[in-house]
Design a protein around this nucleic acid. Sequence first.
DNA 1: CTACTTTTTAACCATTTGGTTAAAAAATAT
DNA 2: ATATTTTTTAACCAAATGGTTAAAAAGTAG
Lengths: 202, 202
Amino acid sequence: MENKSVETQENILIAARTIFAQKGLAGARMQEIADRAGINKALLHYYYRNKEKLFEQVFDEALKKMLRPIAAFLADDSDLFQKIRNICRHYHEVLVEYPFLPNFVINEINSDPTRILKLFDAEGFLEGREKTIIQINEAVKSGMIRPIDPRELILNIISLSIFPFAGRPVIKEILYKNENIYEILKERADRVSDFIIQSIKI
Amino acid sequence: MENKSVETQENILIAARTIFAQKGLAGARMQEIADRAGINKALLHYYYRNKEKLFEQVFDEALKKMLRPIAAFLADDSDLFQKIRNICRHYHEVLVEYPFLPNFVINEINSDPTRILKLFDAEGFLEGREKTIIQINEAVKSGMIRPIDPRELILNIISLSIFPFAGRPVIKEILYKNENIYEILKERADRVSDFIIQSIKI
DNA sequence: CTACTTTTTAACCATTTGGTTAAAAAATAT
DNA sequence: ATATTTTTTAACCAAATGGTTAAAAAGTAG
């Protein structure tokens, strides 16, 4: 009996991910989520008190899955180039699974900035960031890489990894029409790190 | 008399830009737009028949301002590196003025992909793209730049230029807290093109 | 002053939507 | 078989919202 219940809840979450991703929090309809999960609205509210709670669960879950390993990579002791490769690869892996995540973050940070930032904090992202900034500065000083502001390098890594997923529908139409964009993006991970490393290495 | 009318309509557009940018099409409220424009809802509907029409006007106007010059840069005869510099600079200039544009495009392409793509077409973006792809391939063949898939290079340029604006609220919090992010992004244009050129040049 | 346009007011409507309720039905466990 | 949990049905509610209407008021031009 419990199986069925768990299965239904899982179906709800899967449906919610899709709908929230397509329409955002405001645009999503509880009825549509229920339909897609193959249940009715009453049951949907039976398991998830309201729209906000449902959204929060879907959102927090996905964001944690993204941030926790990134924080770990930032904090570990591998050398800079390896770190860049790890991070790019992880971004691409998770985003192939949760391609809606960037839009979630981008859209919802406007409505409640603090909640998202708390998640960054909780997942240890900020400490890892400090450590990596120091590491980049040292790499510059030791002549391993060209002079670059650490935050700018981080921003470039993030931009190259995330934007193609955030803008995926447009990208697909203007650059990769009639191709499997997910395949292309998945394969891109290592080329992105090469592109970055090529730019900074001496 | 006409002045007042035009001024009111302009106020509406300014207000609409802000609200649509913050809340998206679904999340925006006509009442809120009216309030921000300093008028009432009846007058808002008097000038713009309905929400969709208003959104369309705001959106199309901004996207054209973005695309038309990009198309021109892609189509002109300057050498590849100069082209990259022109494009990065233009993206940054327009996006400082319309920072909401990327989110607009990203969000609304889901609801009606064809309308946006028509705009790309109409603004001559696609022809410029073809010409630039050929140019990149030739630059590779002539040994001017490292081997790279032209579409991937274009994607990297777009990602580095646009993502920082799309993700601006998050970026600001995790990297540039307490700083003027617009100033930082504006200054970034030339460093972005340097980063790209450094990566591909031989 | 008169004619015309712009703006306001305020009530009003239809629809959508999130959410509830309560009872019946189905499924499952013991 | 009985008790418990899960699911459905269907009606219902309150609030929000896009949009309308019509008449009055204010502003403007000739």
